[in-house]
Write a protein that binds this DNA or RNA. Sequence first.
DNA 1: TTGAATGCTGGTTCATGCATGTTTATCCGT
DNA 2: ACGGATAAACATGCATGAACCAGCATTCAA
Lengths: 256, 256
Amino acid sequence: MTELMVQERQAEILRRLKQEGRVVATALASLFGVSEDTIRRDLRDMATAGLCERVYGGALAIGPGRTTLKQRIGVAAERKKTLAAAAISLIPAQCLVYFDAGSTNLAIAEALPDDLALTAATNSPAIALALQEKPLVEVILIGGSLDRVAGGSVGARAIEAMAHIRPDLCFIGTCGIDADGGLSAFGLEDAAFKQFVAARSRRVAVAATREKFEVSAPYTVAAADQYHCLLTEPGIDPARLRSVRDAGCQIVVAGT
Amino acid sequence: MTELMVQERQAEILRRLKQEGRVVATALASLFGVSEDTIRRDLRDMATAGLCERVYGGALAIGPGRTTLKQRIGVAAERKKTLAAAAISLIPAQCLVYFDAGSTNLAIAEALPDDLALTAATNSPAIALALQEKPLVEVILIGGSLDRVAGGSVGARAIEAMAHIRPDLCFIGTCGIDADGGLSAFGLEDAAFKQFVAARSRRVAVAATREKFEVSAPYTVAAADQYHCLLTEPGIDPARLRSVRDAGCQIVVAGT
DNA sequence: TTGAATGCTGGTTCATGCATGTTTATCCGT
DNA sequence: ACGGATAAACATGCATGAACCAGCATTCAA
C-alpha cells in the first residue's frame, strides 16, 4: 500500500467504519504499516471529533453504520434485512425508484449495493440520508410538510413535487394490511400522498413484515388490485396471501 | 521535463489532484525540478483560492466524494455549538425560519430548545431529521435534486418549492467569506439556490466559523450588503469584520 | 528599476515511533 | 460467583526527522 497522509488514513478508517461498523486497532496498524500508537492517536482524534466511538481494542461506528451492526446481531431487524435483500432483486438498474417513508423502506435503501446505479426519489429525510451514501444513486428529495408520525413529506406541496415524477417502480410503506390485501395508513394526508404516488408509478411494490397483517389502520391507501407486488416473510396465513394473488398481485416471500 | 511557468505548474498540479485525488509535495518538487518551497507556495496559494485542501506532506482534492457533509459535522463541533447558542437568540418565536444545508446550521437546528415554537423550512435531510425531534417545530422540507457535497436539495424543483415560501429569517451556509465579506459556495447550483433563498427572506443571517474567512470558493452567493447579520467567533481579524459592518451588517461574536 | 518568481537560511511545528507506567479485559483457581 | 493473575491495550512524555513558514537574497524579464 502506498504511504498515506494522516487525513487519508483517517478517511479510510472512517470508510471502513461505515462499511463494517467496527475497526480493530492492531489490524489497522499492520494494514497501514504504522505503529499501533499512531492508529490509537487517529482513533482518539476521530472520537473527540465525534466521528466514531472509541472502545477497548478499536472503535465502533456511530449512527446508521452502527445500527447496521446492531441489525446484524438483532433478530427482528435481521428479518427486515432479508426482506430488503429480496426487494433489491426487484429493482432494475438505471431506473427511477420511489421510496416511501418507513422503516422497512429505509432498510431497503440502506441495503442497496454500492455498484447499483439508479435515480431514487423519496419523501423521507432519513431515507435520503441513507441514499446519499450510495455513490451511484442520484437522489431526488420530495419536499412538503413533514409528517412526524410517517417520517416523510406529505400535503399539497409534496403532491405537487411528485406530479413532476413518474417512477418506474415505487416501494409504498403500509401501516396495515387488511383481510382482502388492502393497504392502510394512520394519517389522512399520509394516506392521500401514498395513494397519489402509487397511482403515478408504473409498478407498485409493498414490503411488509408479518406483523403488518395483524394491523388495520383507519385510512385506506390501495386495494390489492392496485399494487403489483407484495414482498413479505414466510409464515403468513396462506389464505391471506391467496386473496392478494387472486387480485393479480405477485407475491414474493423473502428467504425461501 | 521542460521548464514551466507558475500558472502552468499549478494547472498541472490541479490536473493531477483531480485525477489522483492527492499530491505529495516532495514528489512534485522533483517532478518539476523546483525546490520544495516553491511547491509549498503553490499549494498554499491554491488552498487559499479554495482549489485544494492543504495537508501535512502535500494536498488533497476538494469536491464530490472528498468532503461530504458527514465528515464536516465532526469538525470544530464544540465551537459550532457555541455559535449555535448565539444564533438561537436571533430567532423570534412563532416565525418562519429557513435553515440552509450545512454542518453549522445543523448545529443550530440541534440546539433549538424544546419550548421554542416556530415553523422551520430546510433543504437538508439531516437538518429535517434534527428538527423533527423538536416538539413545537413544524417542519417544511424543500425538495429537489440532492447535492451530495452541499448536503441539501438544489436545482429548479428546489427553487420552485422555495418560491412558495417567504421566510422571516434564514440562516445561509457559506463555504468561504472573501475580504469584502462576500459569501461563496463550491457548487454552481448550490450557490444559485442560496442566492434565491436569501433574496426571498426578510432577514438573512450567516453563521460562520473562523476558518471560513480563509477560504474563497468559486461561486459567489451574496455581497456583504445582501445579508443582515454575520454570526461568528472571537479571533477574527477586526479589519475584515469592519468592512462587513460598514456594509450595514450586524456582527455578532459568539462567546464574548 | 521595479516586481515577480524562486532558492536559501534559520527557527518552528508536526507526525511518528519508542519507552514508560497505568488501565482494562479475560482467564483461572478457589 | 468471586478475587487475583496476566497479557493486551492504553495514555503520556520524549526524541527525531521531515515538513513547514517567514524573511532575505538572487535572478530575470518587462
